[in-house]
């Protein structure tokens, strides 16, 4: 009697844990199915080729045009810019924190980085809007400071905590014998760091960069506030751009449920989902790759 009760309890608890365990997967699948169902509905009425390769995004003109090239380009240029700024700074910071900084400074810096990660993106966007945007405008003498460059700089701040934290883990994991071996051969600390430590940590650093890219490309609020939201194919960093995320966020509220525009935004969501999925997948490959 007692035993059957215990077994039933076990069974229930295990079942609950199992359910919790698969919840995340379940949600991802449900979201993807929902995205696909809504997004693919677009292509019943609108040709996929024009969606993927069209160069104009005019959702409310007559007839509407849903070419996502300017939006994809907008996301790409902001991301590329942000990564170009964030990667050198972050990798250098990670090297400093794990190899050079005294313990006190190290703790202080790590706390600071966590703080940076904790700032809501809308706050960063707001700060960017009132400080960075006027600065960019007057520094480059351009008509508006709402540009891809402004977006890149703000997003670099958001990507930095991710990149620093993961790159630092990778650098910390470099076996001590490698470092000792290099120093014992007469390498200076700097030679040891860039010839051995960075090389040994490179898979982890690449993973960190990929996750940073994932963070940047999916960011919405700050870019919506400071990139100017003009859906044209950008030719330079000093032009306003509009990203995929900002498009979805700003237009979703104005569409009619079930309209072509509504479906187009979901289709855009699929594209974004696929891009971030690929980036995370690559990051995972590098994170779990065996040492050379």
């Amino acid at each position: 009697m007692d035993r059957t009760l215990r077994r039933t309890k076990e069974f229930i608890v295990e079942g609950l844990i199992f359910l919790s365990g698969i919840t995340s997967i379940l949600f991802v699948v449900l979201i993807f199915v929902f995205l696909l169902k809504e997004g693919l509905s677009l292509f019943k009425e609108y040709p996929a080729g024009q969606f993927l390769f069209g160069t104009g995004w005019y959702p409310i003109s007559e007839p509407p045009r849903f070419g996502i090239v300017p939006l994809v380009c907008g996301s790409l240029i902001v991301t590329v810019g942000a990564i170009m700024i964030a990667v050198p700074v972050s990798v250098a910071a990670a090297l400093y924190i794990s190899e050079l900084a005294p313990v006190k400074i190290k703790d202080f810096l790590k706390a600071g980085i966590e703080m940076l990660a904790a700032i809501p993106s809308v706050v960063l966007g707001f700060i960017g809007m009132v400080t960075l945007v006027p600065f960019v405008r007057s520094f480059f003498h351009i008509p508006t400071g709402l540009t891809a460059l402004s977006g890149s700089i703000m997003l670099a701040f958001m990507a930095m905590p991710t990149i620093i934290t993961i790159a630092e883990d990778a650098i910390n994991a470099v076996p001590k014998p490698y470092k000792e071996g290099a120093l014992a051969l007469g390498a200076t600390r700097w030679q040891m760091m860039y010839k051995i430590v960075l090389v040994a940590a490179s898979p982890g650093i690449i993973a960190a960069i990929m996750l940073g890219i994932g963070r940047v490309i999916g960011e919405t609020m700050a870019v919506m506030m400071i990139t100017g939201n003009s859906a044209v194919i950008p030719h330079s960093f000093l032009q306003p751009v509009r990203t995929m995320t900002a498009t979805i966020a700003s237009e979703m509220g104005e569409t009619v449920y079930g309209s072509e525009h509504y479906f187009a935004l979901f289709a855009l969501g699929i594209v974004l989902f696929i891009i971030t999925f690929i980036i995370n997948f690559i990051a995972d490959l590098f994170l779990h790759r065996k040492k050379i």
Binding site: P177, Y178, L183, A184, L185, G186, I196, V199, A200
Partner: peptide, 16 residues
């Protein structure tokens, strides 16, 4: 000094 006095460690530690 370290150039003229080399060291071999307990476990082989070739660089990656």
């Amino acid at each position: 000094l370290r150039k003229s006095v080399g060291m071999v460690f307990q476990r082989p530690n070739p660089f990656p």
